[in-house]
Amino acid sequence: MIRLYHVSKSYGSAQVLHDVTFRLSKGEFAYLTGASGAGKSTLLKLLYGAEAPTSGKLLVGGVDASKLGPARLPLLRRNLGVIFQDFKLIPNRTVFDNVGLALEVIGAERREISRRVNAVLNVVGLGGKGERRPLDLSGGEQQRVAIARAIVNDPAVLLADEPTGNLDGAMAVEVMEILLSINLRGTTVLIATHDIGLMERFPHRRLRLNAGRMSE
């Protein structure tokens, strides 16, 4: 589902990823781990096409994200769910609208949007909070809004950047359980995290990044 061949990425003269090669099969659940600054977020950005690799090749669901023109990049992103490190919630829109955005951009009917958004809000435990604004919610709730938006259109691949980064223990476990349940429905999941405790509690494949070099 995800393949990288000798991928390198530099920002100017600073090389952030060095010759990274790995593959992730359909339905797999894996951690992308490494210290802060190791290049985890950068690798995810390559996968959802926000950055292009400096060299090497990268395939997501069979398409080369780096070679997609502006017309086809949106099509890739519709098959990806991304949980951003900073959530990227729109502060002056309701929780419902924030989650519905992912369906709105693909032209879903309003009734369909309403049905699916309400369903997914229940999945992440935010049923009844659809009319709130993100800033009125706790950090954990905001995180779950971000998850809801990422999974609302049943993506083939879910990418999560530090989804438990600013949550306390109990909340982190709750979020992990949501992500695992999504994986159980067949979605390929890649989670960037440096939370060792969590990885030990929910053991899965680990892809380690160390100053931009990958090892397992």
Binding site: P70, P74, R78, V82, P91, L101, A102, V105
Partner: peptide, 13 residues
Amino acid sequence: AELETMKLVGATL
């Protein structure tokens, strides 16, 4: 913020 998010979740130009 809104436009960027729209683009990130797959909105076309």
